[in-house]
C-alpha cells in the first residue's frame, strides 16, 4: 500500500492505494500522527483506490479519527466501494466516522468544521 497526499486549504487528503490491512495499518496511523504534529487536523480519507480493507485497517481509521478529534479536527471518508462501505456498516464503524458522498462534500464538511474551529486561515 502507499498513501498519496494532497492538500486543499486546511484539509489534507490521504489516498491509500492498495490494501489497508494488518501489515499496513500502522503506516496510516503514523502518517496521521505526523500530520497532527505539523498542525493538520482535518483529514479526508479518499478510498477510491483502496482495494481491500480488514478489521485492522478499520481499526486504524478509527484510531486516526480519535487522534484527529483529540486535536479538534476529524476524519471524513469518501469514495469507498460498496463492499468496503458494507464492512463499515456491519461493524458500526460508520457511526464513529462520517462518510461523504463525494470528495467535494467531504471537503465541505471538513472545511466548515475547520472554519468553525478557528483553524489557521
Amino acid at each position: 500500500m502507499e498513501i498519496k497526499v494532497e492538500v486543499d486549504n486546511n484539509v489534507v487528503i490521504l489516498r491509500p492505494v492498495g490494501s489497508l490491512v494488518a501489515s499496513t495499518a500502522e503506516f496510516l496511523k503514523a502518517q496521521v500522527a505526523k500530520l497532527v504534529e505539523k498542525n493538520y487536523v482535518h483529514v479526508l480519507l479518499d478510498m477510491a483506490k483502496l482495494e481491500f480493507i480488514d478489521s485492522s485497517g478499520l481499526g486504524a481509521c478509527i484510531a486516526a479519527n480519535k487522534t484527529l478529534a483529540g486535536s479538534e479536527g476529524g476524519l471524513v471518508c469518501t469514495g469507498a466501494s460498496e463492499p468496503v462501505r458494507k464492512i463499515f456498516r456491519i461493524t458500526r464503524a460508520d457511526q464513529k466516522i462520517p462518510f461523504a458522498d463525494s470528495r467535494l462534500d467531504g471537503l465541505r464538511i471538513l472545511q466548515d468544521k475547520a472554519f468553525k474551529g478557528g483553524g489557521k486561515g
Binding site: 498519496k4 494532497e6 486549504n9 486546511n10 500530520l35 498542525n39 489557521k120
Partner: peptide, 18 residues
Amino acid sequence: LPQNLSLPGFRTATRYRP
C-alpha cells in the same frame, strides 16, 4: 507538507495535488 503555521498578519491557502 510544511508545518501548518499561523503567521500573524497573513492568511494563506494552499492547493497541492501531486
